[in-house]
Design a protein around this nucleic acid. Structure first.
Lengths: 400, 400
DNA sequence: GGCGTTTTTGAATCGCTGA
DNA sequence: ATCAGCGATTCAAAAACGC
C-alpha cells in the first residue's frame, strides 16, 4: 500500500491526499471476483442476500445509482493499549479483532476513501447514507463525506442508557456514539418520514439525540459457548429508527459491513429489501440463521403516519365543483373578523384583492405567505369549520 | 491565497493539503504587531486581559508551552440559504455575521490549521484543548486535531434542553453541539478532576453527554437596544463544567475566540486566570464590563472534592452549574441559625466540616442523617426558600 | 402586585412542482 | 435553468401582557 512519507508531523493531510492515493494505486490492484447469485435479483440487484467478500470489491460489481439507502458501521480503528481491567480485576472483553485494526490514520483514511467512494457510486442520486462511529474515526469519516460532495443532513447522537463505565476514572464515561445522515448531493430529495418520527416521539419533533439501550439480553446473539457472536452488535431499536425515518417500504438498503445482520433483520421486519456485505464467513452464518427466523413485515403493520406532502393535491376549486362550497359563500378567519367571498372558479376576493385562498389569506394578514386551507373557515351549523376538513372529505371520496 | 485546483470533485484533501499550504504561504505574510500591555503579566503571559486582534497573530506573540488549557469556540462557517420563517411567519434571526463566513471547505481548513497550530504551540506539554462546533465544522476540526498529534480524550455532547426546532419538518431537531477534549500529546498528563465531576453528577461518573439549557434569561447579554449582544453566547454552565473538570485554580486558560467573555467570566469565578483574544472591539467592550462586575472566586468556595465519599441522592451540583446557587453562597437552616457555604462542585462546608448537603446538614445537627434538600434554605428577596424549590426548577429543565 | 395567558426567540447548511 | 405558486411547518423558556 502506498502511503505518504512516514514520520511527518501531520499525518493524512500532508502531501498527497488519501483520496488521491486511493484512486491512483489501490483500487486497480483489486481483482473483481464473480460471485454466485443464490437469491432474488431485482433490477440487477442481488436483494435480500448476504454477499461474501471485501465490501469495496462487491460494491464495484453492483450497478451505479441503484440503492436507496446505505447504513454503514465500519471498523472504528480503536487504538487500544494493553488489557483493560475492571476495579474487581476482571478483564474487559475489548474489541481487539483483526478487522478493527486498520493501522494509523493514513491507512484508515485510505480504507475510508475506498468504501465511501464505492458506496457513493452505488447510491441513487436521491439516496442517503448513514454512518456510525466514535471519536476515534467519526471525524475522519465526516470530513471525507463532506469532501466527496455528500450533504450532511444531521449528525445524530446515540445516547446509551447503559454504557460501559470508565473504569480508570481518567475520562468522562464514553456514553454515546455519533451517526451522520447525509444525502448524496446537496440537492438530493431524500426520504424523511417526518410525521412518523414525530409520532414515535410522543407527538413532538424527533431530536438529534436518541436515548436507546445497548444491545443485550435476548437480542444479543451468542455462539455455542455462550460468548457474544459479534463484539459490536448494534441494537435493533437503533436501526428501526434509522430505517423507519429515512426509507420507504420496498426500497433497497445496503449495509457494506453487515456483521451479524442487524440492518437486514430490521429491514426485513419493516418490509424493506436489504443487501448485506460481510467479509467474515462466521458472521455470515450467524446472520443467515437470524434472518431465516424473521417473518417479513406485512403492509398494514409497517404503515406509518403520512406526511401531508405525500397526499394527492386537491385544488380549492374542486370543493366548489363538488358543491361543498357554493360561489358567493363567505370564508372567515378563525376569529371571524376577516372574510373573503368565493368565486365560481375557485378564486376568492376580499375587498380589492382577489386570487387563490393562499394569496388572499396572505394579503389580508400582511404576511409573506399563508396556508389558505388552515386559515380560512366556513360557517356550518353556526360553527366555523376549517376548509381543510372539506378537503379531507373530498380525498376520502377519491379513495373510495 | 493559494488553494487547490478549483472544481475538483474532492475538495480539501486533493493535491496539496491545507496544512501544507498554510505553512508555505499564509503565516509568513502576517505582521506581528506589538500590543500595549495594560494588565498583569505572569511568566511573560498577559493574564486576565482581553487582547484585541487576529487570534493567530496574537498567539504568535505568546511564549511557547505557556498556557494550561485552551477553550475555543471558532466560527462554524454556517452555509445558509435564503430567509427562514417560522410557521407563524415570523423571521428567524439567523447567524449571518461576516465573521462566520469563512468560505468553502478549503478556506475553512486553512483557517482551522492556522489557529490550531498556534494554539498547539502556546499550549503546555501537559495541557489540553477544548473545541466546540456543529456538524458543519466539527468533523474538520477533529480531523486536524488528530493529524496535528493532539490526542482526543473524549468527545462530549452538549444536549440542549431547549433547542430551536426544525421549522420546515425536513430534518431532526438540531438539538446538540459537539465538544472535543484533547491532550497536546498522547502521553500528556492532563488535569481531570474526576471526583469533582462525580460529585457534580449525583455521585456517579460524569458521562460524555451533558444536558444543559442554552444561554438565555438574565445571563444573555443585551445591547442598549435590547438585542442580543452576541449571536452565539455560550451558557456559563457549560464552561463551568469544562473548567472545573480539566483545570485547577490558578492555572491559565486561553480563549482565542473570546466573544463576550463567557470563558473569562467562569474562569474568574472559579479562581483561574484567563487570556482572551477577540477581533471585534464591540464584543471586547461588552466582555470588559461583564468581567469587571464579577467577584473572583475565593479558595474555599472553589475547592472541590478530592476523595471518595458517600453518594448524595440528588445532584445538588446541578443548581450550582445552572447559576441558581453560586459558589460561596450561604445556606441556612429554617431558623437561620445554622449556615453552610456552597462550593463549586456542589459540595458544601460548615466550619471544618465539608461534604454533601445531607452530610453537613446531619453534622451541624449532630443527627445521624438529614435530608439536605428540605433542611437547607437560600435567601431570596429577604425570605428563606428551601433549596428543594430550586431543584424542582432544575428537574423541569433536565426532564426536557 | 400577583397570577394566568400570550408573545417572543434561539449557531439553521430547513420544499416541491410545473410552466 | 428560472420563476412563481401551492401550501406544509415549531419546542421550550422567558418576557411581555392583561386582568
Amino acid at each position: 500500500m502506498i502511503l505518504p512519507e512516514p514520520g511527518s508531523r501531520c499525518r493524512g493531510r500532508c502531501g498527497e491526499s488519501a483520496l488521491t492515493i486511493w484512486k491512483a494505486a489501490s483500487i486497480h490492484q483489486w481483482r473483481i471476483s464473480r460471485r454466485k447469485k443464490d437469491g432474488t435479483v431485482s433490477n440487477g440487484l442481488p436483494i435480500d442476500q448476504i454477499l461474501h467478500g471485501n465490501c469495496v470489491e462487491i460494491m464495484r460489481s453492483l450497478p451505479e445509482g441503484s440503492v436507496d439507502l446505505i447504513f454503514a458501521d465500519p471498523p472504528y480503528n480503536l487504538q487500544l493499549g494493553g488489557d483493560l481491567h475492571r476495579p474487581d480485576n476482571s478483564k474487559v472483553d475489548a474489541v481487539d479483532d483483526a478487522w478493527d485494526q486498520i493501522g494509523d490514520f493514513d491507512d484508515y483514511d485510505l480504507f475510508s476513501c475506498g468504501w465511501l467512494e464505492e458506496a457513493r457510486r452505488v447510491l441513487k442520486d436521491d439516496g442517503a447514507i448513514w454512518t456510525i462511529g466514535s471519536y476515534h474515526n467519526i471525524f475522519r469519516v465526516g470530513t471525507f463525506l463532506q469532501d466527496m460532495g455528500f450533504w450532511i443532513l444531521n449528525d445524530v447522537i446515540w445516547r446509551k442508557s447503559n454504557p460501559m463505565p470508565n473504569f480508570r476514572g481518567t475520562r468522562f464515561t464514553n456514553a454515546h456514539e455519533t451517526l451522520i445522515w447525509a444525502a448524496k448531493h446537496k440537492d438530493s430529495k431524500v426520504t424523511f418520514n417526518y410525521q412518523a418520527m414525530k409520532a414515535l416521539n410522543d407527538g413532538v419533533q424527533m431530536r438529534s439525540d436518541w436515548t436507546l439501550p445497548i444491545c443485550g439480553g435476548g437480542e444479543r446473539l451468542k455462539d455455542s459457548d455462550g460468548r457474544k457472536a459479534h463484539p459490536t452488535q448494534k441494537p435493533e431499536s437503533l436501526l428501526h429508527r434509522v430505517i423507519l425515518a429515512t426509507s420507504d417500504p420496498g426500497q433497497v438498503i445496503l449495509d457494506p459491513f453487515f456483521g451479524t445482520g442487524t440492518t437486514g433483520a430490521v429491514a426485513k421486519k419493516l418490509g424493506r429489501h436489504f443487501i448485506g456485505i460481510e467479509a467474515d464467513e462466521g458472521y455470515i452464518e450467524v446472520a443467515r440463521q437470524r434472518l431465516a427466523a424473521i417473518e417479513p413485515g406485512k403492509a398494514d403493520a409497517i404503515a406509518v403516519t403520512q406526511s401531508k406532502r405525500a397526499l394527492p393535491r386537491i385544488p380549492f376549486g374542486a370543493l366548489v365543483e363538488a358543491g361543498l362550497i357554493k360561489p358567493g359563500d363567505t370564508l372567515y378567519c378563525a376569529q371571524g373578523r376577516r372574510t373573503a367571498r368565493v368565486r365560481a372558479d375557485g378564486s376568492v376576493s376580499s375587498g380589492a384583492e382577489a386570487g387563490s385562498i393562499h394569496q388572499v389569506g396572505a394579503r389580508v394578514q400582511s404576511a409573506p405567505s399563508c396556508n389558505g386551507w388552515t386559515f380560512w373557515h366556513v360557517r356550518r351549523h353556526g360553527n366555523l369549520v376549517p376548509i381543510d376538513v372539506l378537503r379531507t372529505k373530498i380525498r376520502a371520496e377519491m379513495d373510495a
